[in-house]
Design a protein around this nucleic acid. Structure first.
Lengths: 338, 338
DNA sequence: CCTGGCACTCCTGTGTTTCGAGTGCCAGCC
DNA sequence: GGCTGGCACTCGAAACACAGGAGTGCCAGG
């Protein structure tokens, strides 16, 4: 176990390095923090911290920088979550209150988060699996063509074109619509399949193939469209990183362009509470020198989706975590209201 | 007027510079192109081209690079559009054919274009103003709460929540839905307002405020949601630019993150035919060292939206233009089919 | 009008040197 | 035992010098 003072030294190193972006030496440390000991002592502490793997030297005779392990300790033990100022909180609320629909909410959130943290923001659309059905609508487009519109309680709308095996009358369609809605409205997506299984039985044998086609598409939408959408913003903030960054920025940009990677990134975050993944804790190679701060958000108690930011491992963790948490809360409120 | 050979020299300079990314000198030119004259002669031609402003020297005693004006001449007079290979065309078709809905079409298009041109791709969603109404749906959510769903012929779906001044019965809503659809289905958005103006007259005075509220929201959606969406992809390709690029990449990324800028960017493109804006021809400062190649696409003869790519002024214009044109054509086809 | 020759420019890459922040270690001190 | 000042050492970064070479402009001759 590290002594109190050594932890203090680590904290000081992290803070200074995050601020200056330059390796921090023993002398500079004692000057900027009231550690009450001399540089030589700090050097000894640093040697220990380095042995334990919390800090490292880019090269001999340079200052120290925190390792992933060092940041981990910092986040877990040494740093709290920095609450936002009330001005900031008011700004968040004002900005989000202007949203008109779900797309707009997500769009505003991502911009807000990027601006607040000056990093890359990632916001997942409220997930279909966890939301429930608000309404199912069937629209005749042509004799044997139907459009299925699925509306969720989070305001999301999915539509699908269905080619039926035979023409479907308006009345049949109306009938189906009514029965379908009476069974599934208010239900969780996951609960829907068993509830509609026997629906075709109530129809004339001639109509059954079409009814089955509609149901099949509905179920497919429920499952397949769980492929969740994600919005990204603030990519320009990547350029604030190290100055030598064409090298480093490239793989990050590439990783961020892949929906799959982003989904996995947020997916790995815990369902409740804030998750911080630092450097190599991220599964994706391109993100080995970045950290991800993510948190779930939702209209009720339960998280329906996640949001977060991606930034350099050398980031202001307390501030970032504060901003992420605050934004998630307000978005949750907005969703609950609408 | 420049002589034939001087134009040939300019063409050679552009081609070489695009290929090597390095200033091109007279000797290298004669070696790589069969100009039939000596380096000294080429030097004289270059001096003239420089006087006229088509090329420039980064510094004395370096090779020449084309200016914006030089690229402009190249694009207008010296270069054609390079058609894609049949393999490429097949790949495009295969890739786009797999799309399931509009979001998917746009998403695939943007990825395809980015990959094909190795540049940043920009695709505008089919515009609401130019599309027409396929169906309007009204769904009762609560006694005095209605959801309006608007479906366009390009497959786009817009939804709006409406709080009515008084409870609305199912029958009234059904009635309104029927009358509304009979009047507006198949109509252009721009034509809708006059067609629905007198609709409230047919309803019971008690219901009129609610009907008016619904109509107001519909019209608002038509107008306001003409705020068009844009999808962006291939940002990682920015890193292929000059190696010294944190400087240059920054403003470009910032510009690309602003929807407004992107909209204006595509908006400035001609409605028909391909538009190429080179360097300072772009209104936005951050894009002064980039070129934009854009073209309209649509399901019929008329363009419903635009797409294009953003890349360095030093780009392969014939190839890029070929790819952009080809992709636009196939997207148009896909939209027409669905 | 084209060409070869020539002097000149100036960027680029390479090696050398200097400078200084930072380190590890040691002996002494509380 | 733990802290401190002192000291020699390391090594990257910045400054400087220098040669090489690609490229130019200009001129005289074909």
């Amino acid at each position: 176990m590290l002594s109190e003072r050594r932890l203090e030294v680590l904290r000081a190193i992290v803070q200074d390095y995050v601020g200056t972006e330059e390796p921090v030496g023993s002398k500079a440390l004692t000057e900027r923090h009231r550690l009450g000991v001399s540089p030589a002592t700090v050097r000894n502490d640093m040697a220990v911290l380095e042995d334990e793997g919390y800090i490292a030297q880019p090269h001999t005779s340079a200052g120290r920088i925190p390792t992933d392990k060092g940041y981990r300790l910092f986040v877990d033990k040494l740093a709290g979550v920095k609450p936002l100022s009330s001005a900031e909180r008011r700004a968040i609320q004002n900005f989000l209150d202007g949203a008109v629909d779900l797309d707009d909410v997500v769009g505003r959130t991502v911009r807000l988060l990027a601006q607040l943290t000056r990093q890359v923001a990632v916001v997942q659309y409220p997930s279909l699996t966890r939301s429930s059905v608000r309404h199912v609508e069937l629209l005749p487009l042509a004799p044997a063509r139907v459009m299925l519109v699925l509306i969720t309680d989070t305001g999301r709308v999915e539509q699908r074109l269905i080619d039926c095996p035979a023409p479907v009358g308006e009345t049949v369609l109306g009938d189906l619509r009514a029965r379908l809605n009476s069974r599934v409205v208010g239900r969780r997506f996951a609960d829907v399949p068993p509830l509609v299984q026997d629906l075709p039985d109530g129809f004339d044998p001639d109509e059954r193939p079409s009814v089955t086609a509609v149901l099949a598409t509905l179920l497919e939408t429920l499952v397949e469209e769980t492929e969740e959408r994600i919005m990204l913003g603030g990519a320009a903030n990547l350029t604030r990183f190290n100055h030598d960054f064409p090298l480093t920025i490239r793989p990050v940009l590439e990783a961020l362009e892949e929906q799959m990677v982003l989904l996995k990134l947020l997916g790995e975050a815990k369902d409740s509470g804030m998750t911080v993944r630092i450097g190599h804790e991220n599964f994706h190679e391109g993100l080995n020198s970045t950290s991800v701060v993510a948190v779930g958000y939702g209209s009720g108690d339960e998280a329906v989706a996640k949001l977060g930011v991606v930034g350099p491992t050398r980031m202001d963790y307390p501030g970032t975590m504060g901003a992420v948490r605050a934004v998630a809360r307000y978005v949750g409120q907005i969703l609950a209201e609408s």
